[in-house]
Amino acid sequence: MIKFDHVDKVYANGTKALDDVNLEIEQGEFVAIIGLSGAGKSTLIRTINKMIEVTGGVVSVDGVDVSKLSGKALRRYRRKIGMVFQSFNLVNRTTVINNVLSARVADMGFFRTLFGLYSREDKIKALEALDKVGILDKAYSRADQLSGGQQQRVALARTLAQDPEIILADEPVAALDPVMADVVMSDFQKINRDMNITVLINIHHVDLALQYADRIIGIQAGKIVFDGPTSLYKQDEKANFRKIYGRDIIDDDLMKERK
C-alpha cells in the first residue's frame, strides 16, 4: 500500500509542486493521474521511488518511510518499483534484449556488470517479459530501429523484467499515435490484472484514463482536487473536468474522437 500523508514538495526555485497531498493506494489498483502539465503529476509519482525528495510530510510504501531510505536500502527498495517514461529512455545504440536486461543489473555484482555476464535466469526473464508485451521477435533488433509504440513496449518489458510490485508511468503514451497508445494502455491493463501489479499512470488524455483506469486522481497546482473511482468521475464528467483543468474540455485533451 502506498500512502501519502500531508506531503509537500517545494523546489529550490520556490515552485510548489505538491501541496498537502493525502492519498492511499492499495496493492493492485490501476490509477490514472490527470491534470495540466506543470500541475505536479510527474513530481507526485517520482516521490514514490525517491527520484525526487519530498520537503514535507511522509510517503510510505508498505509501512516503510521512503524519505528515510538512502544508499543500499534505497536501491533495494527501488528494485520493486518499475518506471516507464514518456521518451522511452532506451539506449538506442544497443539491442532490445540488452535494454531489457539492464533492469536485472541492479541485482548483479561489480564484475558481472562490467563484463555483461547475465545469468540464464536473467535472460529467460527478459525474454518472457518481451513475450508478454508481444515483441519477442524483436529481441535482437537495435532499439532505434523500432517504432515508437514498440519502443515503449520494450520499456514496459524492461520494467517487467524487474519483477516490480508497483509500476510508475510518466506520460507513457504522450509520444505515441492513437492506435499505439491504445495497445500500450491495454498492455498496462493486462499487466495490472494478470500480475496484480499496482499501476500509477500520469496521463494527459482523459478519454484513455477513463477507458483503462479503475481510479482517477485529479491534480491541480499541487493539490488533489479529485480522487475516486472512474465511475464516480463519469457521473459528472463536465464538472469534474472543470475542477481539475479549470476550463471546459477540448479536443486536445482526447486521444481519439469522442463518440
Binding site: I97, R120, K123, I124, L127, E128, L130, D131, L136, Y140
Partner: peptide, 8 residues
C-alpha cells in the same frame, strides 16, 4: 522464449 534464448 527458448528459441530466442539460444540466439543470445
Amino acid at each position: 522464449v527458448d528459441g530466442q534464448y539460444r540466439k543470445y
